[in-house]
Design a protein around this nucleic acid. Sequence first.
RNA 1: UGGGGUGUCGCCAAGCGGUAAGGCAACGGAUUUUGAUUCCGUCAUACGGAGGUUCGAUCCCUCCCACCCCAGCCA
Length: 561
Amino acid sequence: MADTTTTEPGRDFIRDIVQADVDAGRAQVVVTRFPPEPNGFLHLGHAKSICLNFGVAQEFGGRCHLRFDDTNPVKEEQLFIDAIQRDVEWLGFHWGEHLYHASDYFEQLYRWAEHLIRSGDAYVDDTPPDRMRAQRGTLTEPGQNSPHRYRSVEENLALFQDMRAGKFANGACVLRAKIDMASGNMNLRDPVLYRILHATHPRTGDAWCIYPTYDFAHGQSDAIEGITHSVCTLEFEDHKPLYDWLIARLPVPARPRQYEFARLNMTYTVLSKRILTGLVRDGHVSGWDDPRMPTLAGIRRRGVPATALRDFVARVGVARANSVVDVQMLDAAIRDALNPTAPRRMAVLRPLKLIIDNYPEGRTETLEAIDHPDDPSQGTRPISFGRELYVEQDDFMENPPKKFYRLSPGKEVRLRYGYYVTCQSVEKAPDGTVVALHCTYDPQTRGGNAPPDGRKVQATLHWLAAADAVPAEIRLYSHLFDRPDPGADGDAMAHLATDSMEVLTGAFVEPALAAAPVGTPVQFERVGYFCADPDGTPARPVFNRTVGLRDSFAKVKTPGR
RNA sequence: UGGGGUGUCGCCAAGCGGUAAGGCAACGGAUUUUGAUUCCGUCAUACGGAGGUUCGAUCCCUCCCACCCCAGCCA
C-alpha cells in the first residue's frame, strides 16, 4: 500500500517565508493549522490548503493542527466534523494529538473580550443591524460613530455579562471593537466581535448564547496554539490589520503571522461550499460523495487515489495570482498515479455479439492475459474464449471512414490475448441495427500472436467470452457543469450539465471483477480507469469511471473542437 | 483622488538586475498484442502598456490599463 507523494513539493513564496523565518531564528518549530468550518464537506480547494499546511509542517519538521473553526452554531454539524476528519486522513495527513476546536477557547476568548472592554477598546452596541449597516458608510464614504461608542467600561462590562447570561434576544446587541469608522479598510470600522445566537452548538450545546466572530476567534486561537504561520486565502487579506490589531492588544501567549495565497479554481467546476451545499440539498447529485462532486469524498468514491490529489496540488503550485486550473491537469495527475499500478482487465461497456463461425460449436478454451504490461510481477490470469464473444459497439463500423483501424466487413483485427478474427458478415435486426458480427478466426494466432506468414493487423480489441461474462452496471461521469466558467455570470446552477452521468446497464466485465473490492482501481483496457462502487453486489457489480484513457482516436473522429 | 491585491506561452507556474525553468495542453516522429504507456523532438527575441534609471530590467522608479477582494451580528 504505497501511499507516498510522488511529486516532490515545489518551492513557493510561503515556503520561502517559512524558510527565512527558520533561518533567522524567528521560528523554532514551525506550527501551522488547517482550520475548516464544519459546515460542509471538504473539496479540492481544501485539498490545496491541507497539502500546503500539513506539507509545510512536515517539510520543516514542525506540526500542523486540525482546528475546527466552529464559531457559528447555526451552520455547523457533527456530521461535517466527522467527514472532515475522515477526508484529511484519507488525503494522507495526520494531526496526531493536535485536534482542536475554536469552541475549546470560548471561555478564554470571553475573558479577552472583557480585557478589551476594560482597556476601552471594545463596547457593546445595541444599534439595530440595518442601522448599523447604514452607519458603516460605503466603500468610498466613511462611516459614522455609533451613539453607544463611548459607554463607560462598567456599563459595557455589565452589558456584555448580560449578553452572556442570555438576557437579550438574537440581534439585540453586539460587542464591537473600537477602531476607526473612517478607515478605508471596512474591517476596521468597529467590527463585530461577539453576537447573540441562541442556538445549540454541536460541541458546547447550550452553554453559550453569544459566539465570537471569525475575526475575534481566529487569530487568538492561532496564538493559543502557538501557530507560527497562519496561512489562509486571499480574501482574508483585508482582515490581517484587524488580526494584528487584536493580537497586539491582548495578552496572548504568542504572535502568529498571517499569510495569504490564491484559492484553487478549476474549469468546469465549482468550488463554492454554498453551491455544493445546494447541489446536495436540491438533489442534483446523490450526496456529498456523489462521484461527480469535487469533494474529497466524491473524488475518493470516483476512484481517485490520494496520491493523485497530492500530486495534482503540487503541480498546481501556490501563488498569489487568481487563476483557473484546467481540469485536464487533474486528469493527467490521476492517470499518472494509476497507470503504473492499476491491474488491467477487460470490460465491454456497450456489447455487440461476435460469432466465430469456424470455431467449433460448444468448445471453450482458456487463454492467458497479462495483468500489467509494464509490471511482470503482477502476473497473469486465465480468461476464457469461445465461439460467442462480446466486443465493443464502437469497435465496429459497417462503412468505416479513412483512418478507422478497427472491425468492418472484410477487415481482420486481433482480439487481445485471443486470436486474429476477420469480419465476414453482419447480422441485422429488421430495423437495420447491427445485432451480431459473423467472423472467422485464424487458429494459428492463438494468444493474439502473429501468424507464421507475419500478417499484421492495425487494431487490437478487447472482448469477453459471452459464456462467462458478468453483467455489470457502469457509470460514466463527466463535468457537473457544461461550461469552463460556470460561475462567471453569477448563476452557476444555470450551467448544471444535464448529461454528467451516463449509466450503462448492459455492460459486461471479466468474471474476476465480480468480486472487485470497492474503491480499488483497475484499468479496463482501451477504455479507462474504473473502481467498484458500493452500490454494486457480486452478482451485479457497479463500476465508476475514474478517468478515461487518453484517446487520440477521438480527435480523428471529431477533429477540431 | 476608498482600501487591499494581481498581471510571465492556450492553462498553471519558476524567475528576486546579467540576458525567459518545469508541468498540463497541442503538434511531429519512434517503439507498442491498450489508437494507452514509454521514448525522442517542436512549442514566449518575449514577461499588461508607456516612459525612466542602468553597460544591461521580467526583475528598480514613474504614470497608465485590466482583472480580483472588501460595505454579514458568515467563514
